[in-house]
Write a protein that binds this DNA or RNA. Structure first.
Lengths: 258, 258
DNA sequence: CGCCAACTTGATGGCTGTCAAGTCAGGTGG
DNA sequence: CCACCTGACTTGACAGCCATCAAGTTGGCG
């Protein structure tokens, strides 16, 4: 799998005083020249609006693999756009059971679950060394009230998160293990494709346990289904390296009755 | 269970030309004097803002039991607030399997899944004779850009739908049948309470099959768990009439390690 | 009164969870 | 450079929960 080359950004001006100075850096790559622009919040903005929008991202933040971007219960201030890397979001219930809510890659937004209550509802954890654009939500709201296209995009992004969740609910509520994993792989494939990567070959950044948690399965079941798919000639699995060899075959599994 | 007395509203002025004249009626109960105000979109608005907001609802619509408010794939124009009645939303996948995404009662909003794509993602079906406030989304966006408190509420409502969905994902992904049904009953109880009804006694408007679909279970399993709860002295079930006799007991089931 | 949808309950089976043992890969330190 | 260690993964055996199939029962409605 390709690893996007990370532009090294200078550290923030020390006169700026924000929470994570150590891992934060001033944005010199603007939205206007970001290659993820069309997948992200400013999607489709005209040049004039793009100019007005770009100081939404007044800072970036680097998150090392295994570290959290925000934790459940923390005060909500900003939403985040993944610029480089890969995240999971999860919620721990009062019995200590973790449920992974989703996986997030370049251009996707994190933290919107905090808008309603003022606290993040879940935790976002980097699954590889990552970098995010920090977008203070009050600033977004302010700009959204003045830039109609941005307002539209914000609403779209929130609503699409709802639709995404409905897809997951469908998966969890009415699909068997094979269907779930096939749907999961196809979804990843499609998202990698949208980012210019191979639709059929990629590295999973998450463990079998995290996949299982997301899909409502145990890690052994995930492993078994991978093996079964491999024997059926649908994929070539070598640990975290996945090559899908029969996309139509996976589609058939998702679509099939049962 | 109490059945809210429905204010009969006059039919719309025939000079107004909208899609569902037969079942639509002009709004004469305004947001300002609606008893669901504090559960709905205009929640917490000051009097001045409330005045400006109320023509968001320029029409109401009545939906008979079994009829749909909107269908998956239809063009999205409005979101709806339940004023009287009870709805389910659901999505049918390409195998014809229905997944119920949620149940909605007075003051709750429907149709927000259409904001992103321009089409409703699911179908909303009335489970009893119902009435909704129709709120054209372009109008909402327009007002939201001018009334800061409304903008805030709109974002809250969208985000809370995300958090609600995450709760369902947790339920589907990591709970056994008893935990799911207990959580479901407690959730209903809490929502009825917020509306001034009894926390412990209510009528289920949906069938066992619909509950099952929502909870990722088969109807027989739902029925069996109801019987088990009844034998354990947690609830008294008589068809759709439910009386919860031991709320702490249900809480313990949801919280307990499996 | 009779019909039908919704519901309940029983018997059985299968999918997936659980427990256990072993393999693999990557990283660390001698 | 290799041995070792550890976390992640794979695979097998077995069990339990829930789905499936089937046969009644109930209650509402024409």
């Amino acid at each position: 799998m390709h690893v996007a080359s990370v532009t090294r950004l200078p550290l923030a001006d020390p006169s700026l005083n924000f929470q994570h100075v150590a891992s934060a850096c001033k944005a010199d790559v603007t939205c206007a020249n970001c290659n993820l622009r069309e997948l992200c919040l400013p999607r489709g903005l005209c040049d004039a609006d793009m100019q007005r929008v770009e100081n939404i991202v007044y800072v970036r933040r680097r998150i090392k693999r295994g570290e959290t971007l925000f934790n459940a219960g923390e005060q909500f201030n900003s939403i985040y756009a993944v610029r480089v890397g890969f995240f999971k979001t999860s919620v721990i219930d009062n019995d200590g059971r973790e449920q992974v809510m989703g996986f997030f890659m370049g251009g996707e937004l994190l933290g919107m679950d905090g808008v309603g209550s003022g606290c993040y509802n879940g935790t976002a954890t980097a699954l590889e060394d990552s970098e995010v654009c920090v977008m203070p939500f009050s600033l977004i709201e302010d700009m959204a009230s003045r830039i109609r296209a941005l307002q539209r995009n914000l609403h779209s992004v929130l609503a699409r998160e709802i639709v995404r969740d409905h897809g997951v609910m469908m998966l969890l509520g009415s699909m068997c293990a094979e269907e779930r994993l096939a749907a999961f792989l196809l979804n990843l494939s499609q998202r990698f494709t949208a980012r210019g990567y191979s639709p059929s070959e990629f590295v999973l950044r998450m463990t079998r346990e995290e996949i299982g948690s997301f899909l409502g399965l145990k890690l052994e079941t995930v492993s078994r289904v991978f093996s079964k798919f491999q024997n059926a000639g649908l994929v070539a699995v070598q640990q975290k390296h996945i090559r899908i060899t029969d996309i139509p075959g996976l589609r058939e599994i998702v679509g099939q009755t049962r």
